[in-house]
Amino acid sequence: MDLDTFVRALPKAELHLHIEGTLEPELMFALAARNRIALPWKSVEETRAAYAFSDLQSFLDLYYAGAAALCHEQDFFELAMAYFARAHADGVVHAELFFDPQTHTARGVAFETVLDGLERACRAAQARYGISSRLILCFLRHLSEDEGFAALEAAQPHLARLHGVGLDSSEKGHPPAKFVRLFARCRELGLHLVAHAGEEGPPAYIVEALELLGVERIDHGVRAAEDPALLARLAREQVPLTVCPLSNVKLRVFPNLAAHNLKALLDAGLKVTINSDDPAYFGGYIAQNYIDTAEALGLSRGELKRIARNSLEAAFVTEAERAPWLRRLATLPD
């Protein structure tokens, strides 16, 4: 079995995936035409040429511009179904989709419009592909905590349809400490908690996310390697890290995949997972992240199985849901 076939055979969970970041230029232009939205680019080719980022903010500027094409429930449904088709081909058995309602409500798109389209796609993906899924509302950290509370208020009537909350957008200058009250309220509401930390932000942001926000997973977390005490804590407590290798290279966190610290984190005993983040912009969906990282870092098939197992164990699912995936994973050779 070659590497590509092996990776796609691995039952895996995708835990760090921004659904707006799966908007391929072709669909972006189709939706923009249908919704009579003017985009900053003249063609699909010009759009792809713009995917040369110097840092996280340069990516976010383009990401928010592209999201303007998403206006109606059907748009969000088609967006998510396009992702699920790729995820199924990549061997994903469970996906936890981040979505950014503030990006859309600021443009006059109702919260319900976003949620209805995504939830309909989740049901369709379960029926068509057997992929289970969860929806995680992400607050934009470059906005204020009060604006986060407003987003939570809009979500209140729909909490039964949401599984958790996260924190994304630009890290620099926006520490987790900025959102202590908001995350405390989300915890009271019984929501799972995750947060981006330690990508562009320092290791201290990871500590804040754990201690002040009480998160269960760290999204990215690669800069934990700069703090030996934190590294030891993450290994001891088995806090899952949802690492996104191709994203890290595209956003210049690492100069290339060979320089990535994923294997070092794995060797240090951390609960590392591999994910695709914003694959339409970063050059690869989850299987490509597994394959390219394995080739660049010399990961063994046993290590790839361990990463897939980590993802299944870190997923916000019941043990009854998890058990058949783990049994299937155990049948694959090391």
Score class of each variant (00 low, 15 high):
K42T: 15
Q126M: 13
A280N: 07
P324W: 06
R233H: 15
A330P: 03
H94P: 13
S300Q: 09
V93S: 03
E216R: 13
G190R: 10
R128N: 10
S311K: 14
L230R: 05
A80L: 04
V109D: 02
R236C: 14
T242L: 04
H16A: 05
D55I: 01
L17P: 00
C138H: 10
L193D: 15
L97E: 02
D90Y: 05
F254D: 01
D334A: 15
H16N: 10
L162P: 02
R301W: 14
A224Q: 11
T113C: 03
C244P: 08
L231T: 11
G269Q: 14
S144H: 09
H174E: 13
R233W: 13
S170I: 08
K305Q: 13
G214N: 13
F59D: 01
S54E: 13
H196E: 09
I136A: 08
L39D: 03
T113K: 04
L213A: 12
D75T: 04
V92E: 14
D2N: 15
A259S: 12
F53E: 01
L56Y: 07
P101I: 10
G198K: 05
L251K: 00
N261E: 04
S43P: 11
D61W: 06
P279K: 09
L143Y: 09
L137W: 12
L193I: 15
L115V: 11
D2I: 06
L304Y: 10
E237H: 13
A52M: 08
A69I: 03
S54L: 08
L56Q: 04
L231C: 12
H88M: 10
A235M: 10
E216K: 12
A264E: 11
A155H: 12
K12A: 04
V207D: 10
L213P: 06
G66I: 03
Q126E: 15
G298W: 10
E171K: 04
E237R: 15
L231Q: 03
I37W: 00
L56H: 05
F84M: 13
E45D: 14
R86K: 15
D227V: 11
A110Y: 09
G269R: 13
F98P: 04
A32F: 02
S170D: 14
A224Y: 07
E45C: 06
V7S: 03
G298T: 05
T331W: 05
I274W: 00
R185F: 06
D61H: 06
H104K: 01
P176D: 03
E211L: 06
L299S: 13
L10W: 01
V165P: 07
F139G: 01
F282W: 03
D55H: 02
Q288V: 10
L304N: 08
A308D: 01
Q288C: 03
L17I: 15
G201F: 01
N248S: 04
I19F: 05
G130T: 14
I274H: 00
A294L: 04
